[in-house]
Amino acid sequence: MLSKRIIACLDVRNGQVVKGINFEGLRSAGDPAELARRYNRELIDELVILDVTATLESRRALADTIRAVAQELFIPLAVGGGIRTEADAAAAIEAGADKVSLNTAAIASPPLITTLASRYGSQAVIVAIDAKRSGDHYAVYVRSGSTAAERDAVDWAREAEARGAGEILLTSIDRDGTKAGFECEMTAAVSRAVSIPVIASGGAGGLDHFVDVFTAGAADAALAASIFHYAETSVHALKAHLRAHGIPVRL
């Protein structure tokens, strides 16, 4: 049975891990390679390194961070934040990323999805969708949640799949940083609309939130950052909880 994946996100800025509340007010939480090692010991299934500032200066540090992590960890590693061109993606993959995550760039230039899928395979291309509830649908936002993209999240996920995306990373802007639980309705709506895996993100605050998102939310994977960073919950304890609730995990 395919395991539900637990993915840890390392939000980095200039080579240091940070984590914001609703994308604002970042506070520092440590060295990425050290955190990655800890997660690996706890049997994390995958890592995402997200460059939250994506300035030119930060991007140079990012390549070093990717290299440091990929050097010693042999689990899937995705990189996102500021990947705008084929060259940006190539640099991340060259440094050791297995997957790149496109967000604003995919909306701005959807053919980039296909270009990267043709060059590296669909398994290497994640389309990240940041969305918030808007009446009876979910509206996509870009530029770190600041700008409405005038797209519906379910439609955009379908289009991304058709263009060659291998996975969708779906973040609820409403829930991000709140610890109020994942946005299960939105996750289920997107997950049932596509055949590629959907990674749920935003709102993880307790063990039962993960149970919810893997059942009611129909998520294939769940991503969290701060709940693990500050050792509020170990990855191992989370997986044991999921297993006790009948959810297949790698333990």
Binding site: M1, L2, S3, K4, R5, D45, S122, Q123, G166, E167, C184, A188, S191, R192, S195, I196, P197, V211, D212, T215, A216, A218, D220, A221, H245, G246, I247, R250
Partner: peptide
């Protein structure tokens, strides 16, 4: 597949592509 919980939807989907950790 049948989910362990009778939550919103008791039917889980095994998607293709097959992506992730398996035994």
């Amino acid at each position: 597949y049948r989910q362990p919980h009778d939550r919103a939807d008791a039917t889980g989907v095994l998607k293709v592509p097959h992506v992730g950790w398996n035994a």
